[in-house]
Amino acid sequence: MDQLKEALDHNRNIMSEINKKIIKADDLISHSKLKEIANETEGFQVNCSAEDQDLPSNCLGFENGEGIRQIKVPGAKKFYVMCDSKTAGPGWTVVLRNLGNENFNRNWTSYKNGFGSMDSSFFVGLSRLHLMTQSQPHELFIAIYFKHPLHSQFTNSFDNFIVGGASQGYRLESIGNPTSSHFPFIQSQVKAKFTTFDSNNAGTKINYARGTAGWWFTAGNKQSLTQWQIGYEKTLMLIRPKMYL
């Protein structure tokens, strides 16, 4: 009986050791699998981040800066813009283009988020204008093209274009110094908040945006680049980082 008991105890010890080894092996497999999954996840996150980091923050970052491109402004999600390197030189971003085939008499939300089609008439949106001009200093190029006389145009550039944030009513913080005498009205609109037909921030009894289009209107100054006039062929607003200069 003693021998039998000793044999049973010995077998129990062997089985116990085997179970410990099996558990240890399972733990090693689980740990290895978890580590593999963690490495895969980490790599995916790094790759996503690297992809975003590879995107330029403006149209100057593209070798062929023409057409629709995707950019990543610091502090914002990536988004698409229209790049223009033909109108006024390389690296410009089109923020407004009106060919007369789009309704610019829009509400506050539309002007905030942007509207239209980039291959035609559109506005990039106040929120994106703010993000782009706050991320680094920008210059502004504006132009009106007329049908008659054939292809005549008025243009002007300003060297310090800044649009404030939502809490400031997307105020026109600055435009800087002009390079010509065209569009002098915009200089008197600096520090004005943006106005739409459903949000009059101009401090006027009459809402200048009602029935026309949104803009940085002020008391006594209801001119804008968003209102379409007979004889117009196209209106443009472009911005570009000042580092190019």
Rank of each mutant, 00 (worst) to 15 (best):
S224H: 04
T109P: 01
Q136G: 02
F44N: 00
F123C: 03
P178E: 11
E6T: 12
G231H: 09
F141E: 03
I18H: 06
K205L: 12
A166Y: 02
F217V: 10
S135L: 06
L140E: 06
K112G: 00
K242H: 08
C83S: 07
G125A: 10
M243W: 08
L28C: 07
E139Q: 05
Q189G: 10
F44M: 10
L245K: 09
D9P: 02
N13Y: 09
F141I: 00
G114T: 07
Q187Y: 06
Q70P: 00
A213C: 12
N160I: 04
F197L: 09
R97A: 09
K191A: 12
M15A: 15
S152T: 13
Y232W: 03
S180V: 02
S188Y: 01
F115G: 07
F217W: 04
F44H: 03
I144H: 00
N105A: 14
G89Q: 06
T212Y: 15
S121R: 03
H10I: 05
K77D: 12
T196P: 11
I186R: 03
G169V: 06
R69W: 03
H148Y: 15
Q153W: 10
Q189L: 09
Y232T: 03
S121D: 10
L4T: 11
W216K: 02
V94T: 14
F217K: 06
Y208C: 04
E42F: 06
S167H: 01
N113K: 08
P74A: 07
S16Q: 13
M243D: 13
L34D: 15
G176W: 00
A219N: 01
C59H: 01
K86W: 07
N39R: 13
L140H: 06
M243G: 10
T179D: 15
Y232H: 12
Y232K: 03
